[in-house]
Nucleic acid binder design. Sequence first.
DNA 1: ATGAAAGCGCTAACAT
DNA 2: ATGTTAGCGCTTTCAT
Lengths: 343, 343
Amino acid sequence: MSQLKHVTIKTISEVTKLSLTTVSRVLNGSAKKYRISDDTQKVVLEAAKKLNYTPNQAAVSLRLSRSFSIGLVVPTLSNPFFADIASIVSHSLRTKGYSVVLMDCDENEATEVEAVKLLAAQNVEGVIVIPSGIDSSHINILIKRNIPVVCIDRYYEDIPVSYVATNHYTGAFSMTEYLIRAGHTKIVCIQGSHSVVANNLRVKGYKDAMAANKKAWVKVVGNSFTQDNGYIETRLLIQKKERPTAIFTLSDTIMLGALKALAEEKLAIPYDISLVTFDNSSYLDFLACPITSIAQPVNDIANISIKLLLDTIKANANGVKLDQMKLLISPSTVYRQSVRILK
Amino acid sequence: MSQLKHVTIKTISEVTKLSLTTVSRVLNGSAKKYRISDDTQKVVLEAAKKLNYTPNQAAVSLRLSRSFSIGLVVPTLSNPFFADIASIVSHSLRTKGYSVVLMDCDENEATEVEAVKLLAAQNVEGVIVIPSGIDSSHINILIKRNIPVVCIDRYYEDIPVSYVATNHYTGAFSMTEYLIRAGHTKIVCIQGSHSVVANNLRVKGYKDAMAANKKAWVKVVGNSFTQDNGYIETRLLIQKKERPTAIFTLSDTIMLGALKALAEEKLAIPYDISLVTFDNSSYLDFLACPITSIAQPVNDIANISIKLLLDTIKANANGVKLDQMKLLISPSTVYRQSVRILK
DNA sequence: ATGAAAGCGCTAACAT
DNA sequence: ATGTTAGCGCTTTCAT
């Protein structure tokens, strides 16, 4: 290790002939609290600057038992929805004095468990997690250690952790009703993975809307949030003699697959078949036929989660236990030209 | 602070009636090195598990003067290219025992400077940065503190920092030649921001290819990596009497704007005009006309950067100074149906 | 095979 | 207005 000797407050104390305490006080901004003279402050500050001093965070953390860092656990940043949230979270927490330790779990539950354990060991002051699975035992490690947790998007049934998510149910419900109002009766829903709560809520929204409007032709197909799934299911659907009049894909990835299948069969949207989706990626506007979509309220979700987490941390520090919050943020619908009005 | 007393090695030492030293040795895996008996090991391990012990990273860091963390500075995760890199970096570094501290700078240079300073204060062992600007002084803070740095995508002319990037020049060059070989003569290039090195290299690739093939009709327009820019420039271009036969947009965002302008004027790709782009977002396959594109080698870039950084860290620890590396990774071209063969 | 003790860099009682 | 000192949790040299 040929590192040049680190500059510490001790170095500065020697150089300035002042005590460690005084140097420390000046350097961490509690100078006026201890009425340290302007002259002294100046001497210390100058020495610090000249020596290029930076505090050793490990020492501060150890001393204060605070890490000034917050964990962010995401399934994968390849998903733009998660990436957008990570972007806001990282950026916003930094302005509040926290570093963000990122854990990308590659959509793997086992990886997520490891990630959470690592965060616990690092004594993060809180963690925001977008869970990949349904098992909550690893989250319990955090709870037991009294580390505040906020879930985004997906949540656990069995533990009292606050969460904020899109109101998937009302989103899917209102989109389905929109199709029904437009005169569609044979509306099929291509879903993502059943092990994802968000998916199931969307499916329920679709089903309930169909039931509420006395539509008998209820059909849910598919099993994953992939283009392949959208492609395969759509191919199967359009081959049947009783072809749906509208397709509701539960994600943009699924939608892309559906699009490909429709194009291959030369079916035009919305003339031959209507198509709506969930996510509202920015390219929807620029497709051959711009696709109507439910838009998740990413900004609100990220900002509310941060506020919730920081509030919990603060309450915790004061020995107060905050109630679990369940916040469902209403998504908006972006109407484009992919739905044919049949009546 | 109503925290329950933390479990430390001291707790375990008291419970097991063994010394701190022994407990520490067992817990950090150096048991056999000190020939600690199996019985003792078992006792310690069991107590640790029962008490739910996790080491205090701050203490370890302080003691070892190692942080086990690496900084990742990105302009914004809203850009899928950066998000993909962040995903791989976070995931891969964790398997190598490092945490990743994420700094999303919101494409703001001042924010980036702050971010870098924070990373320095945290004693990260290295940092991977995708620079937002061209000023390098903040990076010098890291260099001075002997913290290894690797740049991705963009780099600094004036400091000897290793970097890895797409070979923007050859990518644009070969794409342009492809258009020329297809018989195009009036090829226009819609560029992004001139303050971005990657942009300028792409422009140069385009120009050089045109020159190498003696094409006089060389035209570069535009000034930012946005849909608006693509839209506006394309509207202007197609209004002219001497309309280009092909448009080369230097990013997918720009391309989306171009697409919109073309659709509004009912110009069909590739029949009325050909279109190629740079980035290769996954939706290109599903557009009305699938668009031919240069694909950045994200995986290679991320993995090579990581290797480079870790090698530098290792060398550093041994007092060796590694040479600056400049790695340009060749992008690939994904051919789709957006180019009309004119000869 | 196990332990005692020093010290990493910092902060905060507790002096004065 | 400034200084002395103990200690946060851990690793490691040096003993035994």
